[in-house]
Design a protein around this nucleic acid. Structure first.
Length: 564
RNA sequence: UGCCCGGUGGUGUAACUGGCAACACGUCUGGCUCUGGACCAGAAAUGUCUAGGUUCGAACCCUAGCCGGGCAGCCA
């Protein structure tokens, strides 16, 4: 890719920005913001927005502000502020330790409200929520004007000040813009600017009993911070005329005016993305918390073992556009695998152990084998893995009567024990019930290391651990949280909860090679032939816990499925 | 049946702005392999919502229609 191509706009937002840059509209440069409301945990959809906003700033040499849109104290909390900061930081973006808060502008916003009143563009309305709703009209019929719409400027000024002082009960009065009740755009029908709400705010405490609405706060906050491009999701498209209306009446001549641009939020198959639904999953106990690895939250992705690089690669690959679409979860899976494959040291672990005894291997002998940590990355070095007479192999790697195309162990078959030797199966031992409890084999001592001197080949290579040396670990095998691509589509009378995958978590007791002993939470490995795994924070000195981040692709499983 | 937005292979995104519809994922086939992974090579995709129009030429511009999404919180 030559320079010209690399610098070409990648999406419609970059096109807009470059036009604005050319027209000299942005003053000093490009300035974006990521404006979460601290009322929940961030999810992969937010990651798309974070990567977009911070990425745009980086590309055009500008800044991106992290700004908490905290205008509704009833729903917001510092717990969420902290988690959001942690997530943004983890994703690899920084805001130079200058977080912004819409609540920092409460004073300015109040002054602007007073200014609108002075201009005759806002009034105090005594109607309650129900009345306001009843007089707003419908999308097809105009609303009715409030009886309080004609109050004088002085009366409005007095009443608004007394609202602020706390002279009126919650919900008894609001400040509304005077725009017109017949607008075809519902948001322009004298929208509420301020409401009375006696709630303790996580930052301003009890300083205020009136709080601005989103529409009155957002655009002006952008303006205060010198934001040039205010990027939000599609549902705010109809708010844009109001966003511009406030700025038309409040912005000063010659100062940078922000421009709102809308893009399609991320939808992912096999999961849900709304905060409300995610909250339900947590509250109703369908998952263990916001960071349960089955969740699409950033904290869950992190706990599961995804890297920030994988998430960023995903954000880049899905692109940015305006149509409402659903991205295939397989694309996220791909990005995770691609990244983990490059960086994960390999290790052997057995999830469903079956004893394998090497009959002609001396009892008590141990070979310390030198095995590469990552065959594709010599710099990753190697480790020593103990090999002995009694091993564990994966139960599904042995079949007494193998079907066509099964390359693993079966009576009379020779396979390779990864990094160790070639071994031929001599039989299996069963219990009274007929269950296979042990497999027996003979090894070829000349093949120590993995290859026979005579150059003969085997079709299968199995992972294994030495029974006497293995470390025991709890391994949490996660699968998709929902059984269908579109969990919202449920049977008559049921909701998305009915589409939860009952097998989304399977916990097994596994044997892992001793190399992983002492691994710290967050450490990642590839368990050869199985997938990528990450040490869970539940790990203690006495208990080792792994999460399966994602399985390796398994073409045999696919083949076996087809055969059925 | 008001207003706003959007329709490109199964999925997502492109098409140098009116000039051979491409890239990635997924799928399939073959190769290679001490991971049935990775990697390499290749294939299929009945793809520009429909109908008109402008034009030498339309995914792109115009008109009409169809389909999908959003909007009636003192939520954001």
């Amino acid at each position: 890719m030559n320079n010209e191509e690399k610098n070409r706009p990648q999406n419609f937002i970059e096109e807009i920005i470059e036009e604005d840059l050319k027209a000299g509209k942005n003053g000093p440069g490009v300035h974006t913001r990521f404006p979460p409301e601290p009322n929940g945990y961030l999810h992969i959809g937010h990651a798309k927005s974070i990567c977009l906003n911070f990425g745009l700033a980086a590309k055009y040499g500008g800044l991106c502000n992290l700004r908490f849109d905290d205008t509704n104290p009833e729903k917001e909390d510092v717990e969420y502020v902290d988690s959001i900061m942690e997530d943004v930081r983890w994703l690899g973006f920084q805001w130079h330790d200058r977080p912004y808060y819409a609540s920092d502008y409460f004073g300015q916003l109040y002054d602007w409200a007073v200014l609108l009143i002075r201009k005759g563009l806002a009034y105090v309305c005594d109607m309650g929520p129900d009345e306001i709703a009843a007089t707003r009209g419908t999308p097809t019929e105009p609303g009715r004007e409030s009886p309080w719409r004609g109050r004088s400027v002085d009366e409005n000024l007095d009443l608004f000040e007394r609202m602020k002082k706390g002279e009126f009960p919650d919900g008894s009065k609001v400040l509304r813009a005077k725009i017109g009740m017949d607008s075809p755009n519902m948001h322009m029908r004298d929208p509420v600017l301020y409401r009375i709400k006696r709630a303790e705010h996580h930052r301003t405490g009890n300083d205020w009993c009136i709080y601005p609405m989103y529409d009155f706060a957002h655009g002006q906050s952008d303006y205060v911070e010198g934001i040039t491009h205010s990027i939000c999701t599609l549902e705010f498209e109809v708010h844009r005329p109001l966003y511009d209306w406030f700025l038309d009446h409040l912005a000063e001549e010659g100062r940078v005016r922000p421009r709102q641009i809308e893009f399609a939020r991320l939808n992912l198959s096999y999961t849900v993305m709304s905060k409300r639904l995610l909250l339900r999953l947590v509250k109703e106990g369908h998952v263990k918390g916001w960071d349960d690895p089955r969740m699409p939250t950033i904290s869950a992705l992190r706990r599961r073992g995804c890297t920030p690089e994988a998430v960023r690669a995903f954000a880049a690959i899905i692109g940015v556009a305006k149509r409402d679409t659903v991205v295939d979860m397989a694309l996220l899976d791909h990005c995770i695998r691609e990244d983990l494959n490059r960086r994960s040291p390999r290790v052997m672990g057995v999830l469903d152990p079956l004893r394998l005894v090497i009959e002609n291997y001396p009892d008590g002998r141990v070979d310390e084998l030198e095995i590469a940590n990552n065959p594709e990355e010599p710099a990753a070095g190697s480790r020593r893995v103990p090999f002995s007479r009694v091993l564990y192999i994966e139960r599904e790697d042995f079949m007494e009567e193998p079907p066509r195309g099964f390359f693993r162990l079966a009576p009379g078959r020779e396979v390779r024990l990864r990094g160790a030797c070639l071994a031929t199966c001599t039989g299996a031992v069963k219990d009274e019930a007929g269950n296979i409890v042990e497999v027996r084999c003979e090894w070829d001592p000349a093949s120590l290391g993995g290859n026979a001197p005579d150059g003969r080949r085997v079709k299968g290579t199995l992972h294994w651990v030495s029974a006497a040396h293995a470390v025991k670990a709890e391994v949490r095998l996660y699968d998709r949280l929902f059984t269908c691509e579109d969990p919202y589509r449920a049977e008559e009378g049921k909701d998305f909860i009915s589409n939860i995958n009952p097998y989304s978590l399977k916990i097994v007791s596994a044997y892992i090679e001793p190399h992983v002993a002492g691994a710290r939470p967050g450490e990642r490995f590839q368990f050869e032939r199985l997938g990528y795994f990450c040490v869970d924070p539940d790990t203690t000195d006495r208990r080792l816990v792994f999460n399966r981040t994602i399985p390796l692709k398994d073409s045999w499983a696919r083949e076996a499925k087809k055969g059925r």
